[in-house]
Each structure stands twice: as C-alpha cells, then as structure tokens.
C-alpha cells in the first residue's frame, strides 16, 4: 500500500476520526485517557491507534513508562495540497466559513 492508501484507509473509520478529533483538542494523551468517554474497549482503541500510527497520522512519544499520542496533520495537508492549489484555497476557505455561519456554528 502507498502512503496515501494508508492515510485514506485510516481515515475511513468514524472511530479513528474521533480519536484524531480528540488529539487535535488535546495533544499528548495516553491510551487510558483516550479510552475515557468512548464505548470502545481498550483493545479496540489500541488497534485503531496502531493503524493511525502506520499512516503517520498519530505520532507517539515515550515519557517514562507512558506512551503519549499526538495528532500529526502533515499527511492530510500533503493530500489536500495535491488537489487544492493556492488560488482555490482562498475560495474554499470562504465557502467553509460561510457554511459554518449558515449552519450556526462558530467559524
């Protein structure tokens, strides 16, 4: 599998996207902390993390006995840039902003 394949495969799962959301909000979480507030078993979260790490979407750092996880958005950025040039980026950001306003979220 190519790197892109690994990234798309890793992202094609709602639980794994939730884990990434969680790490975006708060970096440096251990497995135990990532399991909190989920219905998933520790084993399931651990398996998802391995897939995310293979895709380089999660980077882990050892701190003593703990393994802390961080979101690595670089592969997603690489993919986005492959199809979105700089001129489009401004228009897309404006559209995204508009959508957020119309849907009632804070931009």
């Amino acid at each position: 599998m190519t790197t892109d394949d690994l990234v798309f495969k890793a992202l094609a799962d709602a639980s794994r996207r939730l884990i990434l959301d969680r790490l975006r909000d708060e970096g440096g979480l251990a497995l135990g902390q990532l399991c909190e507030g989920h219905d998933m078993s520790r084993q399931a979260v651990s398996k998802h993390l391995a897939i995310l790490e293979d895709a380089n979407l999660v980077v882990s750092v050892r701190r003593g006995r703990e393994k802390l996880h961080h979101l690595n958005p670089v592969p997603i950025h690489d993919i986005a840039l492959r199809w979105i040039g700089r001129f489009q980026a401004d228009h897309l950001a404006a559209l995204h902003h508009l959508k957020k306003i119309l849907e009632g979220d804070q931009p």
Partner: peptide
C-alpha cells in the same frame, strides 16, 4: 505549556 509533533517521510 503545550507541544506539537510533526513527522514526514
């Protein structure tokens, strides 16, 4: 403090 980790191949 906070920290960020970025990796690319």
């Amino acid at each position: 403090t906070t920290e960020f980790h970025y990796t690319t191949y």
